[in-house]
Design a protein around this nucleic acid. Structure first.
Length: 805
RNA sequence: GGGCCUGUGGUCUAGCGGCUAUGACAACACCCUUACACGGUGUAGAUCACCAGUUCGAAUCUGGUCAGGCCCACCA
């Protein structure tokens, strides 16, 4: 069998992708009796492009899945895309140059759906291209009817449980997107700003100075706070302060939350500058004064500043204060403001009607559930618990957007009663559909809820969504809880946590037994990759330049959970590995063309040596893979292949393979047998990491013998041919060979140069030496060998070698 | 401010109680050896961030310091 000189990954990888799909190699079999391994695959957010971080973490989960498949398990590995929500909405607005808010909802939603349909196949192809072995026929998109139904059903069930409520409450709001956003959707932006020192009159006659970065909220000031221990000001507690530009007076109250060091040491309490303001509002039972509209423009309650946008109002208030001589000073300040991560707009806190899931009373249960899940790596659990302990708000699930899953409720026009959809009628669009029953008051005139569900309210149901693609209820029992949730560490606090929450409510069970948490791909300097920094690496370019296998090989180089700085040269390593295994296989297949699986009566020492070492590698690799330590498996297989198998074993057996006449047919057969099994095992060990080239090599030679369609459904190697004695002798041979090589190298001689006389003194039995003398002779090109066994006190490692040229 | 993680030759990395501390890339020297020059063999290069402790013995365990990363909170 003659292999082409070079391996061409560009052609081969596409060929095998098509083969796997056509032959349904990764299909889940709902009727199989084999143990199931089910995966709650993260649905990537459709953005038209896979980024390097995706290829990193999805490769890592794929290593594990492919390993589990080779253990003979029935793999349930669905694939979905997350294309519901604000991210998609903004993407479509950009792509199509439209604004959702100026369109009819239906029209906009249709445009989104149509556009998604166009771009989705390309997007999903990126995942196929890196060799993700999901069953792409088990497919969902979080905006499809199936997901809508499940998501709305979850809402209705929770509503019936009394877990969902609607409340008018202060909440984080994006004036640009005009929707409520969650805590996790915010990010910090550092900014140059002015700290404004404003002078207020008090009922005691003296003036006080208050420092703020938000002077425009002046008309919304509801109180002044002073620390009760602040000697400078405590006499003012109980007095009143007059709000400039209005007739209002507010109370000066004692509040121990005040930081006496910041600004002037006096806080003005507005509606709402930050979350503290909200907290104090409740604590002191103060009525808010809402001066901001949803678009960030001040309303009539702002008096003379009405109609101005926040930023304009800020300047206007400063100017007005200056005119009245009420500015003590303006201090430049660098501070951090919260912005909406999608559009980088400063967030506001507004009082709006929102839907919430009540869950703060269940923190202990959620922590308990987290402890039932096995975390890989374990320390990631700490992040989960930390997050729960710090939770302060119920889960806001409503968004004031167009594109999303509608909240399935109506309001009775007559009595304002909330009517939830009937489970039978799901999915519904309350703006189009009507409830099945009349209101209790007898009315049948309803107003549909306009709000949609936040995307996490749906993606927290991915286990249900994926499993229910099979209508058979028995399947659910087999698949739930799922075996594995793979994901990256940045979304532990929402996607992972939210899924646990939903599973708690709907199933009273953990959603999965194991969670494997990947790290991040960082830029070469170890910094996070982001568009704004311009340090993005496009995985597609890397695949085109190297190969998907090389990219995966790189991703296997980092331990689970660790971040990995990207260096392009690391992809070269993967490609080199491919070349090496290609060439080694070329050699092996050449010498195995006449081999027919016969087992020799007796295995030569060096063959027992390699098989024994291989057995240990297999054992270690398997154990590591079971613990999600694919990087160890990769490293071990790599090192064994390159340095034990290629550098030494192949060199040593060449003589037997080429010179059967001199060394004997049995000796050659023994080498063939070992070569066959060792290489096959190496290819299998590497198959989860490098699925393409291993498939290519398998199909070229081994398939004829193994009779299984693809290497990826072959059995994971299980060999135990440990032979300590052979290892000892074999190691001795390698030491001698290496020593001679070194001598030749130092004398700048070709490795072919014959050795006239090779003298070896070692603690090896003569009969053992006889068994490998021919191997040493061939591998060192020695013409004459003198062997002296050493006895007595010398340790086993004692070895004296003399090389005479 | 709280939590978690990390700190090993120029770069990345293995090791996580006991050997002259892995390996890759880069550098240098040599070798076209019948799988591979997209290769092979070798050489040089690390006081394992710093300090203290536990121990017969620490890169490895404990405490502290410093530096970096991530998450959370705060920033009136």
């Amino acid at each position: 069998m003659q292999l082409p000189k070079n391996y061409n990954p560009k052609e081969a990888e596409i060929k095998w992708l098509e083969f796997w799909e056509k032959e349904k190699i990764y299909a889940f079999d709902p009727n199989s009796k084999a143990e199931i391994y089910s995966v709650d695959t993260p649905p990537p957010t459709v953005s038209g492009k896979m980024h390097l971080g995706h290829s990193f973490s999805y490769s890592q989960q794929d290593f594990v899945v492919r390993f589990q498949r080779m253990l003979g398990k029935n793999i349930f590995y669905p694939f979905g895309t997350d294309d519901n929500g604000l991210a998609t909405e903004r993407m479509i607005e950009k792509m199509k140059n439209v604004k959702g808010q100026f369109m009819k909802r239906k029209e906009f939603v249709d445009l989104c759906l149509k556009t998604l349909k166009e771009i989705r196949p390309d997007f999903v192809y990126d995942w196929k291209r890196i060799g993700i072995s999901a069953d792409f026929s088990i497919f969902y998109t979080t905006i499809d009817q199936h997901c809508q139904e499940i998501s709305q059903r979850s809402f209705v069930e929770l509503y019936k449980m009394g877990r969902i409520y609607r409340k008018r409450a202060p909440f984080v709001w994006c004036p640009e997107c005009q929707t409520a956003i969650a805590q996790v959707e915010m990010k910090d932006n550092e900014r140059e700003s002015k700290l404004v020192y404003m002078k207020f009159d008090t009922s005691l006659g003296e003036q006080i100075t208050i420092a703020t970065t938000r002077p425009e909220l002046l008309p919304a000031c509801v109180a002044i706070h002073i620390h009760p221990d602040d000697k400078r000001f405590k006499h003012l507690i109980g007095a009143k302060a007059k709000i400039p530009f209005s007739d209002r007076e507010v109370k000066i109250t004692a509040n121990k939350d005040v930081d006496m060091e910041f600004g002037s040491g006096i806080v003005y309490h507005c509606t709402f500058g930050d979350m503290d303001d909200v907290k104090w509002m409740e604590e002191f039972n103060i009525e808010p004064i809402e001066i901001l509209n949803k678009d960030g423009i001040l309303n009539e309650k702002a008096g003379r500043f009405k109609g101005l946008h926040v930023k304009k109002a800020r300047e206007a208030v400063i100017k007005a204060l200056q005119e009245e001589g009420r500015i003590a000073k303006l201090e430049p300040i660098r501070h951090v403001v919260n912005v909406h991560e999608r559009c980088e707009t400063d967030i506001e806190i507004l009082i709006t009607d929102q839907w919430f899931i009540r869950y703060l009373d269940l923190k202990d249960e959620f922590i308990e559930y987290g402890r039932k899940i096995k975390w890989y790596p374990e320390h990631m659990k700490a992040r989960y618990e930390n997050w729960i302990k710090g939770l302060k708000w119920d889960w806001n699930i409503s968004r004031q957007r167009h594109f999303g899953i509608p909240i399935p409720v109506w309001y009775c026009r007559k009595c304002n009663e909330i009517i939830a959809a009937d489970e039978k009628q799901l999915p519904v669009d309350p703006l189009v559909d009507m409830p099945l029953k009349k209101c209790r008051c007898g009315s049948n005139v309803f107003i549909g809820e306009k709000d949609v569900l936040d995307t996490w309210a749906t993606s927290s149901l991915t286990p249900d969504i994926a499993i229910e693609l099979f209508k058979d209820k028995k399947i659910f029992k087999k698949l739930h809880p799922m075996s594995l949730r793979p994901q990256a560490h940045d979304i532990i606090t929402f996607w992972l946590f939210n899924t646990v929450v939903k599973s708690y409510f709907h199933h009273k069970k953990i959603p999965w037994q194991n969670a494997m948490i990947s790290g991040w791909a960082l830029d070469p300097k170890g910094k996070k990759m982001s568009k704004s920094k311009g340090n993005i690496i496009d995985p597609r370019e890397m695949i085109a330049k190297y190969s998907a296998d090389s990219l995966r090989f790189w991703a296997a180089g980092s331990r689970l959970g660790d971040d990995l700085p990207f260096q392009e040269k690391d992809l070269v390593t993967g490609s080199k590995f491919s070349t090496k295994i290609w060439n080694a296989s070329k050699f092996a297949f050449m010498h195995l063309s006449d081999y027919n699986l016969e087992k020799p009566a007796k295995l030569e020492v060096m063959d027992r040596w390699i098989l024994s070492k291989l057995s240990k590698v297999v054992k270690e690799s398997t154990e590591n893979f079971i613990d999600y330590e694919y990087s160890h498996t990769k490293l071990e297989a790599e090192t064994f292949f390159w340095h034990v198998f290629c550098d030494n074993y192949l060199e040593i057996i060449k003589d037997r393979l080429y010179n059967a006449g001199k060394r004997g047919k049995e000796a050659r057969l023994s080498a063939q047998y070992s070569l066959f099994h060792t290489l096959l095992t190496i290819i299998k060990l590497m198959a989860p990491i490098m699925p393409f080239i291993t498939e290519e090599l398998y199909q070229l030679y081994y398939k004829n013998h193994e009779k299984i369609k693809s290497i990826h459904i072959c059995k994971w190697p299980d060999i135990s041919m440990i032979d300590e004695h052979a290892e000892h002798i074999g190691d001795f041979v390698v030491k001698v060979v290496e020593f001679v090589r070194k001598q030749k190298s130092e004398k700048q001689l070709s490795l072919k140069t014959p050795v006239k006389k090779l003298t070896i003194k070692a603690k090896i039995e003569e009969k053992d030496f006889d068994s490998i003398e021919a191997e040493i002779r061939a591998a060192t090109t020695a013409e004459h060998i003198v062997f002296e066994p050493t006895r007595g006190k010398k340790t086993e490692n004692d070895l004296e070698i003399e090389v005479g040229f």
